[in-house]
Nucleic acid binder design. Structure first.
Length: 771
DNA sequence: GCGGATCAC
DNA sequence: TATGGTGATCCGC
């Protein structure tokens, strides 16, 4: 309207001129031929019939606009929500466990309701027009799929309003008037009519419904008489088959255009044809698919309404006109991550898999995912992963630009409640421990600093280094994006952070702990509750990369130095180890799970891997035994091991100084030297020696070694849920690397106990640990 | 686990 | 009708 005033000072003609499209203020209108404009204005002269008519029409439009604006004010998200809730309230009366499907659809099982309803007096089934009656009670067994048709009858948003002023006092009276009421019967159809009636009375939304013996049929039924009707299939085989007979398969939920087309290629269009061709289908489709087809053709569907399962993923994506510069793409990516992080945090979710979705200008869609072992939820965390994925894609087309029209970021693999709890605990303890206790955890490295000096390369980038560095950096609020994230993806960039980790305080003498020290994070645990302790350790271990399947092919290897040893690490070992693991797992129960740690005896397990072998034979087999157990973090509880072990090996005091990176040193052949802790073993009992080695070998080390061998490992390892105390992989275990499947159970735990607990306190023995 | 694809809403 | 956004699932690898 303001624009119009520029065209003419005659306010009464403003609207008309606007209608006549004479606004030369509009963009692109400036170049218009003035003559032409004048000519049109001439036509708009007062008194002309054309003008008068336009004026009249304009007034009508103005009225409509006014009305619309009034309505607009009344439309609020709240109102929509309210209408939705009103519907749900009604549905809940018939089935408190009804299953909403999106915003406008729901499944109800009204079986129970029907049963109860039989005994209801009429007044409970009577409903008044324009008035909501509240009857309680609900439940069900006939399945009803209701689809609400917003605005089918009237799209005016005012209908979402409360029935207030307009409904005046007469309503009350009308409500009490029998003439203004309806009584519904007791059949399923009557119930559904009642529901639809009530919904319409309350919200003025119409609904279509299907009544059938299962959800699939109910849904197809509701489609039959939409938008404002209902249909029922009686729960008899013939009725069902009759309904399906000529029903196009496309009507079946789950059959989309692709499946439709494929089936059509086989001459299958209707559900009955689906049945006729079942043999063919069984040969052409997967078991799952063809069974599904068969179920469809027989009208079989779910008869229980599964409650909304937990969300499995969350994503955000955006479409735009072509973006082809990396800079823009990264910034967009970050934006998406930010949005997603906000949403995730709203729901308190943390996920382990980040997926980047890209659609190029040719509409081709690509997804690239990365599962990290530490769950992510913040912008930085997500972006750290997403940008890596994006970078890979950009690189993949270089030197050409990546030309995209859509980008999306998804996070999935959410932690279960339980995992969340543990993780929180773990994080909390990390945070609580802070810097002042960091040195406690870092202390073992310090004890072998000479080694670092010599082998810093080998040590660099080990999981623990990364973890510690990341932890330190995190505690200093340094963005993981700029720090740990990079090093996690690019080991070669982690050396700087490693420097941090070397800032340790030598607390070697303070190793007598009254309280338990976590063998993984080296953090003191004051809890005497071993179960809690187990959880803590679980969590800590879950951060370990357990590329723990390296086989040492020859016993001699144990005495070779690192440089000689490394080349022997081959991928094939992984296979062998996996086989070993299989053997182990399929063996006697001692190698099985230790889900109940209280009854487990770790010392026994040492000798029972191949229980029916003679000691000599066992030794041979223990070669592989060693390799299986190569994945230990530290020499832990050495004294306790020797004490607890009947075939104890002698003092292993040197293990005190063992480093995770300390591997083989050349020693005299005449003496058994632990290849891990470097200490000479007085025992000549190979089995005992093996046990010692088992204890000393650690995952961390193996990770480094395996990484040197370029083990495929796309997943980076911030955490790894190594359920050593529960005897297996946790349910949500991320295990990309095949070698991770070879983790040992039970024993690993005992081996992972911190040497800090090498104290006189018997509570800290492995045995006690397991008890 | 990953990536492509299908499907529902 | 076409296109977009979100979430789930399946299949082959």
């Amino acid at each position: 309207m303001d624009d119009m005033k520029k065209v003419s000072n005659n306010s009464s003609s403003d609207g008309v001129l606007l209608r006549m499209g004479l606004n030369d203020n509009k963009a692109g209108m400036q170049g218009l031929d003035k003559e032409k404009i004048n000519k049109i204005i001439m036509e708009a002269t007062k008194g002309s019939k054309f003008y008068e008519n336009e004026l009249k029409k304009d007034q009508q439009v103005n009225q409509r606009i006014e009305k619309m604006m009034q309505l607009k004010e009344k439309i609020t998200a709240q109102q929509l929500l309210k209408a939705q809730m009103q519907v749900r309230e009604i549905l809940a009366e018939y089935d408190p466990n009804f299953m909403p499907m999106g915003l406008d659809e729901a499944y109800l099982n009204i079986t129970d309701h029907l049963e109860e309803r039989l005994n209801w007096p009429e007044h409970r089934r009577r409903f008044f027009f324009n008035r909501e009656s509240t009857t309680g009670i609900d439940k069900d067994c006939i399945y009803m799929s209701a689809k609400f048709n917003e605005g089918e009858v009237s799209s005016s948003p005012v209908l979402f309003e409360d029935n207030t002023s307009l409904m005046d006092v007469n309503l009350e009276q009308r409500g009490l008037s029998v003439e203004n009421s309806v009584v519904f019967g007791t059949s399923a159809e009557e119930v559904v009519k009642e529901i639809r009636f009530r919904i319409e009375q309350k919200t003025q939304l119409t609904a279509s419904a299907g009544i059938a013996p299962n959800t699939m049929l109910a849904k197809m039924c509701s489609d039959r008489n939409k938008p404002n009707g209902q249909y029922r299939i009686s729960p008899e085989r013939l009725a069902v088959l009759d309904f399906l007979k000529d029903l196009p398969i496309r009507k079946v939920p789950g059959i989309g255009k692709v499946t439709e087309k494929m089936l059509k290629a086989l001459g299958i269009v209707t559900c009955s044809e689906l049945y006729k061709q079942r043999a063919l289908l069984s040969l052409l489709f997967s078991e799952v698919s063809w069974r599904n087809f068969l179920d469809i053709s027989l009208g079989l569907g779910s008869t229980h309404l599964e409650k909304d399962g937990e969300r499995k993923s969350m994503s955000t994506e955006r479409t735009f006109s072509e973006i082809n510069t990396a800079e823009d793409q990264y910034s967009l990516c970050r934006e998406l991550c930010r949005d997603l992080a906000q949403e995730l945090q709203k729901e308190g979710l943390k996920g382990k898999t980040v997926t980047l979705k890209l659609k190029n200008v040719n509409f081709e869609v690509k997804t690239r995912a990365l599962t990290v072992l530490s769950s992510v939820s913040t912008e930085e965390e997500i972006f750290t992963v997403a940008k890596d994925l994006l970078g890979t894609e950009i690189d993949s087309v270089a030197p050409h630009p990546l030309r995209i029209r859509l980008m999306g970021v998804r996070v999935s693999g959410f932690l279960t409640e339980e995992e969340k709890k543990y993780q929180q605990k773990s994080i909390t303890s990390f945070l609580k421990s802070g810097k002042e206790t960091a040195f406690l955890r870092l202390q073992p490295e310090k004890s072998n600093q000479e080694y670092f000096t010599k082998n810093s390369e080998a040590h660099r980038g080990s999981f623990f280094d990364q973890k510690r560095a990341a932890r330190q950096l995190n505690s200093e609020n340094i963005s993981p994006n700029e720090t740990s994230g990079k090093q996690l993806f690019h080991d070669d960039k982690s050396s700087a952070n490693f420097e941090e980790t070397k800032k340790v305080t030598d607390l070697q003498d303070s190793n007598v702990c009254k309280i338990f020290t976590c063998p993984v994070c080296f953090e003191k645990q004051s809890s005497n509750n071993l179960e809690e302790l187990n959880r803590h350790i679980d969590e800590c271990l879950s951060g370990m990369c357990v590329k723990d399947t390296v086989e040492i092919s020859k016993n001699d290897s144990l005495r070779e130095n690192t440089s000689n040893f490394l080349p022997q690490l081959k991928n094939e070992w992984v296979d062998k180890c996996q086989k070993n693991r299989t053997d182990q797992l399929s063996g006697t129960d001692q190698s099985a799970s230790v889900s109940d740690s209280s009854t487990d005896n770790s010392t026994e397990r040492f000798g029972q891997i191949i229980p029916d072998k003679s000691p000599g034979e066992r030794q041979l087999n223990n070669l592989s035994h060693i390799t299986r157990n190569v994945c230990m973090k530290q020499c832990l509880f050495p004294k306790q091991i020797s004490q607890d072990n009947e075939d104890h090996f002698d003092k292993t005091e040197d293990t005190e100084g063992a480093s995770s990176s300390c591997f083989f040193e050349a020693k005299e052949d005449s003496v058994l030297v632990c290849p891990v802790c470097n200490s000479e073993q007085k025992t000549t009992n190979l089995m005992s020696f093996n046990r010692h080695v088992d204890v000393c070998l650690n995952k961390d080390l193996i990770q480094e070694l395996t990484e040197k061998e370029d083990f495929p490992m796309k997943t980076y390892n911030m955490e790894n849920s190594n359920r050593v105390f529960s005897g297996g992989l946790s349910k949500g275990q991320v295990c990309t690397n095949p070698s991770q499947g070879t983790k040992r159970s039970g024993l690993t735990a005992s081996q992972s106990v911190s040497k800090k607990t090498k104290s006189s306190n018997s509570k800290h023995t492995i045995k006690m640990f397991f008890k």
